[in-house]
């Protein structure tokens, strides 16, 4: 399984050049059954990343472009009256897919945003009094423009909490960018991709990630981190127990990707900025620094 997962990473890396770390994080998020939030400027490859992952993992993929006039029904689906049968028939919306890319989620109104987020949380859609389960595995990649752009509805903290990880892609390095500019069109390459894993194998990998061992010593460390976030003057409020679970889940998936069946403090340290970045608010006026400064702050916690 470890070999297969590495193949996934290698294939995705052949399309999105020089971004192995974000790809690994995105894959761990998927293995931990979490949803992913990508926050970055337009044009750095957010959509491509979602597309590559879907193809490589053999998942059914839908993309929803969020706009300010998008309605909940545009996502979830509607019941339409059919003259032939004389009945209402449910037309599933684009959310009924394995992997949903919710592009520019903060452009939609809060009502629409919460429709998506509820579906994400409950893994099902309730419409016209009927509950319909979403396919398994189900995975949402939402992209978000930096909050200070015009015409955005920032997601409230309680909803940001639904995303397991938040990652940034950033500009590519010079060499990777050169290769990108000189190489073939990414769309053509995408079309040629073959799935590496089947959905069933992906579910199996998720099971494996859940079984990764967490030793008491590691739990001590995680608790120390949570405690630190609650007592540090830098943050308005501390991390919730749910955040602690998320941290453990992501660290397990990361350990699995590294080919281990137990979690190391280093795994926690790597996923930590991406797990807590969107869950913490800084006490002072200035905005929360990037993952580098978060990592530096949490480095005040000693590994027991």
């Amino acid at each position: 399984m470890h070999i297969l997962l590495n193949q996934v990473i290698a294939q995705a890396g052949s399309i999105i050049l020089g971004k192995e770390h974000p790809i690994r994080l995105a894959l761990s998020c998927l293995l931990a059954r979490g949803h992913l939030l990508i926050e970055d400027l337009p044009g750095v490859g957010k959509t491509t990343l979602a597309h590559v992952l879907a193809t490589t993992l053999g998942l059914r993929f839908n993309r929803i472009q969020f706009t300010s006039d998008l309605m909940p029904a545009d996502i979830l689906g509607v019941a339409v009256y059919e003259r032939g049968t004389g009945e209402f028939r449910f037309h599933p919306g684009p959310i009924f897919a394995h992997l949903v890319l919710a592009d520019e989620i903060n452009r939609a109104t809060p009502k629409t945003q919460s429709a998506l987020l509820e579906a994400m949380e409950e893994q099902q859609v309730t419409s016209e009094g009927e509950t319909r389960p979403l396919p398994e595995p189900f995975f949402v990649i939402a992209t978000q423009n930096p909050a200070n752009q015009i015409g955005t509805f920032p997601l409230p903290e309680s909803q940001l909490d639904r995303f397991l990880l938040r990652i940034e892609l950033g500009y590519p390095e010079a060499a990777a960018e050169r290769a990108l500019l000189a190489g073939r069109d990414r769309r053509e390459l995408l079309a040629e991709l073959k799935p590496v894993l089947s959905p069933a194998q992906l579910v199996q990998a998720q099971e494996l990630a859940r079984a990764v061992t967490v030793s008491p010593a590691l739990l001590d460390y995680v608790q120390a981190l949570l405690e630190y976030s609650r007592r540090s003057p830098r943050f308005l409020t501390g991390l919730s127990p749910r955040a602690g679970l998320a941290l453990l889940g992501a660290a397990r998936a990361w350990a699995l990707l590294a080919g281990r069946d137990f979690v190391l403090p280093e795994d926690v340290q790597i996923v930590l900025p991406h797990v807590v970045g969107h869950r913490l608010q800084q006490a002072q006026g200035d905005t929360l620094g990037g993952s580098a400064s978060l990592a530096a702050w949490f480095a005040e916690v000693a590994v027991p």
Binding site: L264, P265, E266, Q269, F298, V303
Partner: peptide, 9 residues
């Protein structure tokens, strides 16, 4: 070893 440094790192 820095206090925050994990054993592998």
């Amino acid at each position: 070893r820095a206090p925050h440094e994990g054993p592998a790192a």
